[in-house]
Design a protein around this nucleic acid. Structure first.
Length: 587
RNA sequence: GGCCCCAUCGUCUAGUCAGGUCCAGGACACCAGGUUUUCAUCCUGGUAACGCGGGUUCGAAUCCCGCUGGGGUCACCA
C-alpha cells in the first residue's frame, strides 16, 4: 500500500514526469445507467488526455468507480456504465477491466488501483487520521437528528445554516478519547478562515470567501468517506493532473482545495463545464422517462397495470408518486403498450433508439465545445470523428453558458452518419442493432436479405430503428393491408381512372417476369410504360399503393422484390377489387 | 433567500481576451424553388439574433456599472 503517491518515481514512465503529463479521470457513481451528460464528461476527459498523448506528451484517461454510497451503489450499474462507455468508444488506460470487441479495456499498469472506492477504505482512513492528528479535522458526535433540528431552526430564522463547530467546544483530549473509545461520530474538516480561489480553465478565477465555508463532513458515521475526501485522496494518489467535470461541482472545489492543502497535495488543474438541459430549459433527468409515461397513462385513463411483472398496487404507487421510477424494462413495456415515445436520457436509451456512437460523440462534443475551424467551403467545422476530437480538443474552445440538448440536430447528425456508411457497413450495423433491440426483424429477414435492403433503407432512415418503418409494408400479411383512401384515389381513380386501368394491365404483365430482382422489375416497369405510352408516374404510383397501401416506399424494384412475386400479385388483386368497389359506390 | 456561474438567430454556436474589416458568419430546424416514377437523399435561395438601461470611446456584440433573465449550490448524495 505504501509508495502509491510516488508511482511516477517507481514505474510509469521512466523518462518523465514533466508538464506534458496529463491524467484525466471519469468517476461515475454506480447508482444507475450512464446518463448522457455523464457520457459527455467522460468523452471530453478522454479527449483531453488523448490530445496530450497526440502532442507527444503522456496522456492517460482513467476510470474510477465512486461507490461510497453503500445504499445506492450496485455492481450491475457499474457493469452497465462500463459497457456503455466501451460502446461509445471511450476507452480507459487505468480502471476496472472489461472485454469489448475482443480487446481488454482498463487495467492497472501504474499500480494505483484498486479503482473501486469501496476497496480503498484503508487509504482514506490513513489520510483522515493524518488530518485529525494535525488538527485539520476533528470528530463530531451530534446525531443526524440533532443536526436536522438545528438546521430547521436556522432555516426558520431565515439565516443560512452552517455547522456551529459545537464539537470544537469539547476539549481536544476528551474528543480524542471518545473517538478512541469508538463512540459513533463523523469527521469534519476545519475550513480555513481566508478565501480560496479556484483557477478554473474555462471560467477563470472564482473566489469564495470564508463566510461561505462550513466544516463539512469527510467521514460518515458508517465509516465511509464522503465524496469530497475520497475524490481528493484518489485524484492525488492516482496522479490525476486535470479535473474536468460539470459546473455543479464548481462550488465544491474550494472544499477540495482545502483538503489538498491540509494534506500537502498539489491541486490539479480544474475545468468546469456548463451543464446540459432539455429544450424547455428543465434539467435532463432520469425521471423524464417516468414523467412521460405517467402522463400517457393518465391520458389513456389506465387504472390497472397493463404489463406482466408489475402489480396493480405497485403500478398505483408509481403513478401517484412523482419521484418514483419504474425499472427500465417495465417502463419500456409500458411505453410500448401505450405507444408513446420515451425521451432518451441514458446512453442505453440512445443506443436502443438506433443512434450510432459516432454521431452521439460528435454531437455531445460539440455541445459546449467548438473547434473554431473552417472547412474548405467556408462553413464551420462541426462534423468530426473521435480522431479529430483527440487531436484538437482543448479548454479554449469550451463555452461558458448552459446548453440545451437538441435532439433534432442530433438526429440530423445521426442521419448523416448513416448516409456516410457503405451499404455493407450499414447492413452489418443494422443487423447488430436489430439482434439486440428488434429480434423480430432478424427473424423475418436473413443477413443477406438485410444486405439487399440496405441501399433502399439507408437513405430513408435517421436511426437504425427507423429501418423497420421504411420496410414496414413487408411485415404485413397480404390480406391485412389497409389502403390509404386518399392515396388510392389519387393514384388509381382520379380523372379517368387511368391508374386503375394501368394497374390491371400490369397485373397481367407481372406474370411474365421471370427473374424477380430489383433491376429486372425496374426495367420491366420502364418497358411497360413505353409499350403503353404513359409516364412512369401513371404506373409506378398505382403499383406502389397496391402493394404497400400508401404512397411512400423505397424504389419500386426494391419494394416489389422484398415482397415477392406471388404476394405482389395477391396485393394488386386486392387493390383492384377495392378500387372497383369504390368506383361502383360512387356511380 | 445567501453565495457562485452564465447571457449572440427557435436551438447549438463563430465573433468578445488584443473595440472599427460585423447593417453579425456557420450548423440544425423552418420557408420557397429545383433534381427524382413516390418518399427520402441531393442542389439553390430565403426568413431569423447581439436581453434591457446607463456609461467609457471618434467608434462597442466586443470594455465598465446596474437591472432583468437562466442555471448551480447550500446532505452523514455524488
Amino acid at each position: 500500500m505504501q509508495g502509491r503517491s510516488d508511482w511516477r518515481l517507481k514505474s510509469w514512465p521512466m523518462s518523465t514526469p514533466n508538464d506534458q503529463t496529463v491524467i484525466t479521470r471519469f468517476a461515475p457513481s454506480p447508482t444507475g445507467h450512464l446518463h448522457i451528460g455523464g457520457a459527455r464528461t467522460a468523452l471530453l476527459c478522454w479527449a483531453y488526455a488523448q490530445h496530450a498523448q497526440n502532442e507527444g506528451g503522456n496522456g492517460r484517461f482513467l476510470l474510477r468507480i465512486e461507490d461510497t454510497d453503500q445504499t445506492r451503489s450496485s455492481e450491475s450499474s457499474t457493469q452497465g456504465i462500463l459497457k456503455d462507455l466501451a460502446w461509445l468508444g471511450i476507452d480507459w488506460a487505468d480502471g476496472p477491466s472489461v472485454e469489448h470487441d475482443g480487446k481488454t479495456i482498463g487495467g492497472d499498469d501504474r499500480a494505483v488501483g484498486p479503482y473501486y472506492q469501496s476497496q480503498r477504505l484503508d487509504l482514506y482512513n490513513e489520510h483522515i487520521n493524518k488530518l485529525i492528528e494535525s488538527d485539520h479535522a476533528y470528530p463530531a458526535f451530534e446525531t443526524p437528528e440533532e443536526l436536522e433540528a438545528k438546521r430547521k431552526v436556522a432555516i426558520e430564522a431565515k439565516t443560512g445554516y452552517k455547522y456551529d463547530r459545537a464539537a470544537l467546544e469539547i476539549p481536544r483530549e476528551e474528543r480524542m478519547q471518545r473517538l478512541a473509545a469508538g463512540e459513533p461520530h463523523v469527521v469534519r474538516l476545519k475550513m480555513p478562515d481566508s478565501p480560496i480561489t479556484v483557477h478554473d480553465q474555462i471560467l477563470g478565477d472564482v473566489t469564495v470567501g470564508p463566510d461561505e465555508f462550513d466544516d463539512f463532513i469527510i467521514r460518515k458515521r458508517d465509516g465511509f468517506p464522503t465524496y469530497h475526501l475520497a475524490v481528493v485522496v484518489d485524484d492525488a494518489l492516482m496522479g490525476v493532473t486535470h479535473v474536468l467535470r460539470g459546473q455543479e461541482h464548481l462550488i465544491n472545489t474550494p472544499r477540495h482545495i482545502a483538503i489538498q492543502r491540509a494534506l500537502g497535495f498539489d491541486s490539479p488543474t480544474y475545468a468546469h463545464m456548463p451543464l446540459i438541459f432539455n429544450p424547455d430549459g428543465s434539467k435532463m433527468s432520469k425521471r423524464d422517462k417516468d414523467k412521460t409515461a405517467k402522463k400517457a397513462v393518465k391520458e389513456a385513463k389506465l387504472e390497472s397495470s397493463p404489463i406482466d411483472g408489475l402489480s396493480d398496487a405497485d403500478f398505483a404507487k408509481w403513478l401517484k408518486d412523482k419521484t418514483r421510477q419504474l425499472p427500465s424494462d417495465q417502463l419500456i413495456a409500458l411505453a410500448n403498450h401505450l405507444d408513446v415515445h420515451l425521451p432518451e436520457i441514458d446512453v442505453e436509451d440512445f443506443r436502443r433508439a438506433g443512434y450510432l456512437p459516432e454521431a452521439l460523440n460528435n454531437y455531445l462534443a460539440l455541445l459546449g465545445w467548438n473547434p473554431k475551424a473552417k472547412n474548405e467551403d467556408g462553413t464551420d467545422v462541426e462534423r468530426f470523428d473521435m480522431g479529430y476530437l483527440a487531436s484538437h480538443y482543448g479548454f479554449e474552445g469550451m463555452g461558458k453558458g448552459q446548453a440545451k440538448f437538441d435532439r433534432v440536430k442530433l438526429l440530423s447528425f445521426n442521419a448523416d452518419t448513416i448516409a456516410e456508411l457503405s451499404d455493407d457497413a450499414f447492413a452489418t450495423r443494422w443487423r447488430e442493432w436489430a439482434a439486440s433491440y428488434d429480434p423480430a426483424l432478424c427473424e423475418k429477414f436473413s443477413a443477406e436479405d438485410m444486405r439487399l435492403l440496405a441501399p433502399a433503407v439507408k437513405t430513408r432512415c435517421k436511426t437504425l430503428a427507423d429501418g423497420r418503418s421504411v420496410i414496414g409494408f413487408a411485415f404485413i400479411d397480404d390480406d391485412a393491408i389497409e389502403f390509404d383512401g386518399k392515396a388510392l384515389h389519387k393514384a388509381l381513380l382520379k380523372g379517368d381512372a387511368k391508374g386503375l386501368e394501368m394497374l390491371k394491365l400490369y397485373r397481367v404483365f407481372l406474370d411474365s417476369i421471370e427473374s424477380f430482382t430489383p433491376e429486372v422489375i425496374e426495367q420491366g416497369v420502364k418497358d411497360f410504360c413505353e409499350q403503353h405510352e404513359v409516364g412512369m408516374g401513371k404506373v409506378a404510383q398505382p403499383i406502389r399503393v397496391a402493394v404497400t397501401g400508401g404512397p411512400v416506399s423505397p424504389p419500386l424494384g426494391q419494394t416489389l422484390a422484398i415482397i415477392g412475386k406471388d404476394a405482389v400479385g395477391a396485393r394488386i388483386d386486392r387493390c383492384v377489387a377495392e378500387a372497383e368497389h369504390t368506383l361502383a359506390a360512387k356511380q
